[in-house]
Design a protein around this nucleic acid. Structure first.
Lengths: 206, 206
DNA sequence: AAGATACTTGCTATCGACAAGTAAGTATAT
DNA sequence: ATATACTTACTTGTCGATAGCAAGTATCTT
């Protein structure tokens, strides 16, 4: 988490290192104290630098947070792509659900940080709105594509509106993650996931 | 929104009036600039008082926001009770969904403000966590009750887990509201609602 | 050695919340 | 009835802490 202070590095390496440290520090501090109470001073120190580096590198605190969203959502997107591989239709949707379920268990801090940033995008005047909206629009479009493909192949109920199902699928995931964050004990994360898969199959079945 | 300056009021009336003005101002400012950027100064002025009154009356800014959550969620709860009336099972669940759908259209500012406050409850160390968690636990329990009653009367699929369905139902609602706030154009609020009702019936059918 | 890039420090306006103050309403004694 | 003591409603002074800019220093590159 703290910058390495050994052997001389190239400028590019220095930059890459400090970027990495700052993004890690951001995730950690967002989860520990929330974005607003995460001060530039704390971010700099947690990353092993000064309070000024965040603003210099990312333009502002919000700029750093945007970078966090991009990094985590990109990593998640890659995992989904890998899990879905070539499959479409119901299988693809189930694989995506499964991937998210596991991602939350494996990287709870990343998910917590990202969800907190998603939330802040819903506040008026937030500079994260556009990025976050793009991330979610993309996710919904991807799900809708799988469903549409399944409909063309006859495996999925043709009466269903692919876009609306996709929104429902993604909205559920967001809401459930919110509950999980609020009080992980009050929600049966695993059972909810299993029941959700059953519900998906039921909803999509031709 | 601004305190009345006419005829002398009793202490109780003065208090009720200023409380009302402050709660209204809070909703307005949360929707206009978000909770963090809503300053005590702005709250006081918008309500027609000084910057000190919020702290004096509600203890802190967060105290005022708690009161906002209580007020709006209570009002929504009453509307649900009225709409559901005596019905149970699928009808009760559909009536609750319908009530929320309409509440959002009729009082978008109240919903926006409340959802923003819900979000802030998911941040670490938030003093709203407990209140918000209680509100949502209660909503889920209520939905689960309707479902369980429907199962006892044989109208709802007995294999379903009532609590898990309730969580799914409420999580969807939260997530969809988030999308609606993020970009109301990208979401077909009405179609999503209609499809949701069909999906509920399908999921609950015996 | 000179320029470019990575990073730090000085500064200003603004914030929330506490403490101390003032104004307005209420109770009691004559 | 009205003056005085008291309580409650509300305001203002103050303090430490904040984000982000401008101007500086350290480190790498050519």
């Amino acid at each position: 988490m703290v910058a390495n202070t050994e052997a001389p590095l190239t400028q590019a390496e220095r930059k890459a290192l400090s970027d990495q440290c700052m993004l890690d520090a951001a995730v950690r501090l967002i989860v520990e104290r929330g974005p607003e109470k995460t001060t530039l001073k704390a971010l700099g120190e947690a990353a092993g630098y000064s309070r000024g580096l965040v603003t210099y590198r990312f333009g502002s605190k919000a700029g750093l947070f945007k970078a966090v969203i991009k990094r985590v959502s990109e990593r998640f997107g890659q995992e989904v792509d890998a899990a879905v591989a070539g499959s479409t239709g119901i299988d693809a949707v189930l694989a995506a659900a499964e991937t998210y379920y596991r991602f939350v268990l494996r990287s709870p801090k990343d998910i917590r940080a990202m969800q907190i940033l998603f939330h802040s995008a819903a506040e008026p005047g937030s500079s994260l709105t556009e990025v976050v909206n793009r991330v979610h629009a993309r996710q919904r479009a991807q799900v809708a594509e799988w469903v549409a493909a399944g409909q063309r192949s006859g495996a999925i109920n043709p009466k269903l509106c692919a876009a609306t199902f996709a929104a429902r699928f993604c909205a559920y995931t967001l809401g459930m993650t919110f509950y999980w964050m609020l009080d992980s004990r009050s929600i049966q994360w695993e059972q909810a996931h299993q029941d959700f898969k059953v519900s998906i199959q039921q909803q999509l079945a031709a």
